[in-house]
Design a protein around this nucleic acid. Structure first.
Length: 498
RNA sequence: GGCGCUAUCGUCUAGGGGUUAGGACGGAAGAUUCUCAAUCUUCAAACCCGGGUUCGAUUCCCGGUAGCGCUACCA
C-alpha cells in the first residue's frame, strides 16, 4: 500500500451527468435537432458531464448515407463536439437481449398478426387501438408452438390493463406527468424481422450507456410513458427527462422540408453565411431564456447560464418568410440581426479570415493582406458573410460592371458639375498620397474651390469608383483601392456623362 | 375519435394576486456622418374567451376554444 494514494477528485466520486443526442439518419439535420443537440451539449458542459452522440439507425429501410453526412456536416459546422459516439445498428444484440429479457419476465408477448399498413389508422377516426385481440392472451405453450413452426411475429409489450394502473414521471420542463395504463397501447419491441423498434432500442441503449438525462423534443413527451414502462421492465434506473418545446413554422405547423423548404436544414444557414456562434445564440433563444433580458450570448455565456429551469413550454415559431424574395428575407430577422451583431463584434483579422474563402470561392483573386484591408470597410455593412460579395464587389473586380451614368450627377447638381468634379478630382488626386488625411484635405479643398458642397464633390467620385451611390466612406475606400485604379475608373466615368 | 401538452405585442420572450405589463427583433419617426451602414432618441404594438376564488385577477382553479404532439412491426 502506498502511503500517498492518488487522492480521488470530487469528479471521480460524483460523475457528471451523461446526456445524448440521438438523431436517426433518415433526412438532413433539422434546425430543431440542432437545437436539441445544443441544449444537450450545454447541459453536459455546464455540469461537467459527458455528451454522447448516438445514431439511432434501426430503421434500415429509411436510413441513408447522405443523411449521415448531413448530420455530421451540420454538427461539424456548429463546432461543439461530443465525447462518445455509437451506432445503434452495431448494438442489435444488446437490444434483442433486452427484448427477450422483458419477454422472459412475462411483460411481453408474441403477436402473430400481420403488420398493419400504417397510414390506414393514421387517417382512421375510429377508437384508439390498444392491442390486436386474441394474441395477447395466447397461452405460452400455444405461442411457443407457433413460433417454433416458423410463424413470424412481432414482440409487444404487455401493458398492464384493467387494474387502474398509471404510468408517471416528473419532467424537468413540463412537470409531473401521468397517464392511465389503459390508455397506452401494447407497443412493439421487436419487429417481425427481429429488428428492435425505436422505443426498445432507445431505452435499452440509454440504460446501457448510463444516460442520466434525456433532453429531447416534446414530440416524445407522450412516448415517455412507454419508455418508463420499458426502463422498469428492464430493471434499470430511470433517467431524468426534460422535453423541449417544438420549433414550428409561421403557420404553426411542425417544420418540414417538404412544406417549408431549405430553411429547416441546418446547412442552409451555414451556406448562407451565418456564423455558427451567432446561429447557436439564435437557436438558444427559441424556447429558452436566461430570464434577465440578455440576448447576445457567447458560447461561454450560454454555458454559464444554461439551466433546464430556463426552458419554457410553448412551441416557438421560427419566423421565416415562406415566399422568400431575397436570401436575407427568407430567414428569421432576429437570426440575421444576431449574425450581424456577431460580425460587428469579431476582430478584423478573424472576420477577414472567414470572409477570404467565400470571396475566393466566388472566383475573385484576393489575398489575405488585401482582404484584411477591405474587411473594416464592410464589417458594418454586411449581415451574412456572403454579403461580402455584394458589399465589396468593386474592390474585387478589375472592370466595374455597367452602371447608370445618371448616378454620377450629384444632388442639386447637373451633368456639367459632375464632369467638372471628376476632371478636378482626376487632377488633384494624381498629385497626392493615397492616405485618408491627405485625400480628405485635398478633396474638401477642391470642393470649396469649385464652390460646391462636400457631398456634391464626393458623390460623382464615389459612383465612378464604386459603380453605385451606396458604399463605404470615400477616403478609406480610395486608400484601399489605390491611385491607379481610382484614376482609371474616374477616367472611364468622364466620357459617360452627357 | 382517444390521450397528452400549450396559450403575454407580428415574432422571440420577462413578469406575476394590486405593475405606466418590461426587454429584444421587426416596423414608424427623428438626430448624426460625404452616400449607405452603424450609432443614438422617440413612437405604435400584447395578457385567447367564459365562469369561479378574492376587496382585487393577465397571474390561482374549472370549463370552452384554438394550436401542437402521440395514437405504426417510423423515429
Amino acid at each position: 500500500m502506498s502511503d500517498s494514494p492518488t487522492p480521488l477528485k470530487k469528479d471521480d466520486l460524483v460523475p457528471g451527468p451523461r446526456v445524448r443526442f440521438a438523431p436517426s439518419p433518415t433526412g438532413f439535420l433539422h434546425v430543431g435537432s440542432a437545437r436539441t443537440f445544443i441544449f444537450n451539449w450545454l447541459y453536459a458542459r455546464r455540469n461537467r458531464g459527458t455528451m454522447v452522440l448516438r445514431l439511432d439507425d434501426t430503421d434500415v429501410e429509411r436510413n441513408t448515407e447522405a443523411s449521415v453526412h448531413s448530420i455530421f456536416e451540420g454538427l461539424t459546422w456548429l463546432g461543439l463536439g461530443w465525447d462518445e459516439e455509437y451506432k445503434q445498428s452495431e448494438r442489435l444484440a444488446l437490444h434483442q437481449k433486452a427484448a427477450w429479457a422483458i419477454f422472459e419476465r412475462g411483460l411481453a408477448y408474441r403477436d402473430f398478426t400481420p403488420a398493419h399498413t400504417g397510414d390506414a389508422e393514421k387517417s382512421g377516426a375510429q377508437g384508439t387501438w390498444l392491442f390486436n385481440p386474441g394474441v395477447r392472451e395466447l397461452t405460452p405453450e400455444h405461442s411457443d408452438r407457433r413460433a417454433a413452426a416458423g410463424e413470424p411475429f412481432a414482440l409487444r409489450f404487455r401493458v398492464p390493463r384493467g387494474r387502474g394502473e398509471e404510468a408517471r414521471f416528473a419532467d424537468a420542463v413540463y412537470g409531473e406527468q401521468r397517464k392511465a395504463a389503459d390508455d397506452i397501447e401494447d407497443f412493439a419491441l421487436l419487429r417481425s424481422d427481429g429488428m428492435p423498434t425505436y422505443h426498445l432500442a432507445s431505452c435499452a441503449d440509454d440504460a446501457d450507456l448510463g444516460i442520466t438525462h434525456i433532453i429531447r423534443g416534446q414530440d416524445h413527451l407522450t412516448n415517455t410513458f412507454k419508455h418508463v414502462l420499458i426502463f422498469e421492465a428492464l430493471g434499470a434506473g430511470r433517467p431524468q427527462f426534460a422535453h423541449l418545446p417544438l420549433l414550428v413554422a409561421p403557420d404553426g405547423t411542425k417544420l418540414s422540408k417538404r412544406r417549408h423548404g431549405p430553411v429547416v436544414s441546418l446547412t442552409t444557414y451555414r451556406d448562407a453565411g451565418f456564423l455558427p456562434e451567432a446561429f447557436i445564440n439564435f437557436l438558444c433563444l427559441l424556447g429558452w431564456s436566461p430570464k434577465n433580458d440578455r440576448e447576445q450570448l457567447s458560447l461561454g455565456d450560454l454555458q454559464e447560464l444554461f439551466t433546464l429551469e430556463g426552458i419554457n413550454r410553448a412551441n416557438a415559431v421560427v419566423n421565416f418568410k415562406e415566399p422568400a424574395a431575397t436570401a436575407e428575407e427568407m430567414f428569421d430577422p432576429k437570426a440575421v440581426w444576431l449574425n450581424a451583431e456577431t460580425i460587428r463584434g469579431l476582430p478584423i483579422g478573424d472576420l477577414s479570415a472567414r470572409l477570404l474563402p467565400i470571396v475566393q470561392d466566388a472566383a475573385f483573386s484576393v489575398d489575405a493582406a488585401q482582404m484584411l484591408k477591405i474587411t473594416p470597410l464592410i464589417r458594418e455593412r454586411i449581415k451574412l458573410l456572403r454579403d461580402v460579395l455584394a458589399a465589396a464587389d468593386f474592390f474585387l473586380v478589375d472592370q466595374l460592371p455597367p452602371y447608370d451614368p445618371a448616378e454620377l450627377i450629384p444632388q442639386k447638381g447637373d451633368a456639367a458639375m459632375a464632369k467638372q468634379v471628376l476632371e478636378t478630382a482626376s487632377a488633384v488626386l494624381a498629385g497626392i498620397e493615397f492616405k485618408h488625411d491627405p485625400l480628405d484635405q485635398a478633396l474638401r479643398a477642391a470642393a470649396q474651390e469649385l464652390g460646391i458642397k462636400a457631398g456634391q464633390m464626393f458623390q460623382p467620385i464615389r459612383v465612378a469608383v464604386c459603380g453605385r451611390k451606396n458604399a463605404p466612406p470615400l477616403f478609406e475606400t480610395l486608400e484601399v483601392l489605390g491611385k491607379d485604379k481610382t484614376l482609371a475608373r474616374i477616367g472611364q466615368a468622364i466620357p459617360k456623362i452627357q
